[in-house]
Each structure stands twice: as C-alpha cells, then as structure tokens.
Design a protein around this nucleic acid. Structure first.
Length: 273
DNA sequence: CGCCAGGGGAGCT
DNA sequence: AGCTCCCCTGGC
C-alpha cells in the first residue's frame, strides 16, 4: 500500500473524463484500473490517496501513469482571468490528470470511440479484453483481463469484432492490428517521435482521422500539445471562442486545457446560453 | 479540392 | 420515437 498527499488530483474526475475506458468506480471512494496488464485500486479521501501496490511498483509504473509529478497548478494558473468560461471549466475539473496510457490500447480505444458514447466504448473494450485478452488474477484473487496484443486481433476476420459490439468499426481495428503486427507501422518508433511526426504516422492507419490521431497523441503518447477537435469541443468553440481558441497562450499544453473544456462540456451543468 | 452519405447500436430526452 | 454519439472513408 502506497499513500500520498497529492494536490489537484481527483480519481473520480480522472475516471469520469473519458480518457480511460478501463477505470471503474468500485465503491464511494474507491476505483479500480487495468493498465498494461496490471491491476490497481485507488482510494481517495480529500488529498489523501492510497494505491494498492508496493512502493517499487508505484515508482516504476503508476507514478508516471498518473502523471503525479507534473505541476498542474501551473497550467491552471496560466489561464486568462478574463476568460470566465475557461476559469470555470478549470475549477470544475481541477483534479484531472492526463494519464500515460499504452499506445496500442489507445489506438484501438479511440478507433472504437468514433461516433460512439462513452458507456458503450467501455463495453466494447471490455468485450474485446474478455474474449481475446490474457486472463490474470488480482490481489483479491479475482480474475481480470489484459488488453490483447496486436497479433491476436490481427488474426481475426474483418467483421469478427462485430460480435464485441463494434459495428462498422470492427474492420478499422482489425486492419490496424494487421498494420501493426506486420510491421507496416512501428509503434515503438512512433513512441520516439515528436507530435507532428507521430500524428502523421498514425493518420496512415485505416480508420484514424484527425480527431482520433490527436486523441492517441494526447493519451497514448502524452503529447500535451495535441488538441483533439470533437463534437463537444466544437460546440464550445462555437459558443465561446468564435475567433478560435487561444492556443498560443497555452502553447505546449493545449491538450490539458482541451480536457478541462471537454470535461465541462461533458459533465458540467448545462446552462442556457 | 469540398461535400456528404453511410456505417451498429445503445444511451439519452 | 427520435436524436446523438470524443468521426472516418469513399464516392461524387
């Protein structure tokens, strides 16, 4: 068990902001997450966070995963005080972190996310893991499933993932898995690329467009300058940023700001304006 | 180049 | 009972 006091960290918001589809609320203050074949439970009371792992595993993996050492307060303080909308969005989502998630898993997850809702995305991914992922056992002796490697999904028929409720997205995932398994795209190499180069490479995958590529860059590669333009963000742009979002002001961490806006549009009180 | 239909099926109102 | 959904591909 690892205990830490962390500012600007809210596991509930992190779970609920639509970047991780394998984090679930277990109990009032407890959440579970499966990442890179590992299982973890997180309990939060105020600023006190408990992680159900040993110090060594925390240092080696989860600390980076949760972006613990990054100074989100600095991002929040950089907001233009005259921008009431953004000030409010940041206050609402002040515990959000951009997780360091697995590149391959994010690629598949955001292929599935297109024209889809978050509840169903979770289910689709759960189905894929249960059917094709490696079975593991957590510290409670409960079974859980890792995310399947590309080679497994590459061997499927193009519409076989329709059985996992993917619909027309099935062939996007299978073809992309083949591209990865056959070495047509080298994800290890993409990991070492800068934002623009990585995005261009990802755009070559079947089913990956502008928006999905940016999500993969932000959540799978931690390129914080990626700014995914989805329907929620477009709505916010039309309502509040008719002259465009002030990306220059937040250069280098636009993606963090995007998450605050996204989360507000997704979960904030809907106002009539 | 721009436009837009079509593509699962479930959540949300 | 419709409308929407963290869209992209392909045909025109």
């Amino acid at each position: 068990m690892v205990k830490r006091t962390i500012d600007n960290f809210d596991i509930g918001q992190i779970c609920d902001c639509g970047q991780c589809f394998r984090m679930m609320q277990k109990d009032k203050n407890t959440y579970s997450v499966i990442a890179s074949g590992r299982y973890l439970e997180v309990e939060q009371k105020g600023k006190e966070i408990s992680f159900s792992c040993e110090e060594a595993e925390f240092d080696e993996f989860w600390r980076d995963y949760f972006d613990i050492d990054r100074d989100y307060a600095a991002y929040m303080e950089s907001v233009n005080p005259k921008d009431g909308y953004l000030v409010n969005a940041i206050q609402f989502g002040s515990g959000i972190r951009i997780l360091h998630q697995d590149l391959w898993e994010m690629t598949v997850s955001f292929l599935i996310s297109q024209q889809n809702n978050i509840v169903r995305i979770r289910r689709c991914i759960g189905n894929i893991c249960e059917r094709y992922g490696e079975v593991k056992e957590n510290f409670r002796k409960e079974r859980y499933y890792a995310f399947p490697r590309p080679e497994i999904l590459a061997g499927l028929a193009e519409d076989e993932l329709k059985e996992c409720n993917l619909g027309y997205r099935s062939k996007y995932v299978v073809r992309t898995a083949r591209s990865v398994a056959e070495g047509e795209i080298d994800l290890e190499a993409v990991r070492d690329m800068g934002y623009k180069e990585a995005k261009a490479e990802l755009l070559g995958l079947y089913g990956v467009g502008e928006k999905v590529a940016d999500c993969i860059c932000l959540f799978g590669l931690h390129h914080l300058e990626a700014f995914p333009m989805d329907t929620h963000i477009l709505q916010a742009m039309e309502k509040h940023y008719r002259r465009g979002f002030p990306r220059r002001r937040y250069k280098g961490f636009e993606g963090v700001m995007q998450q605050y806006v996204f989360y507000w549009e997704l979960r904030g009180e809907k106002r009539q304006d």
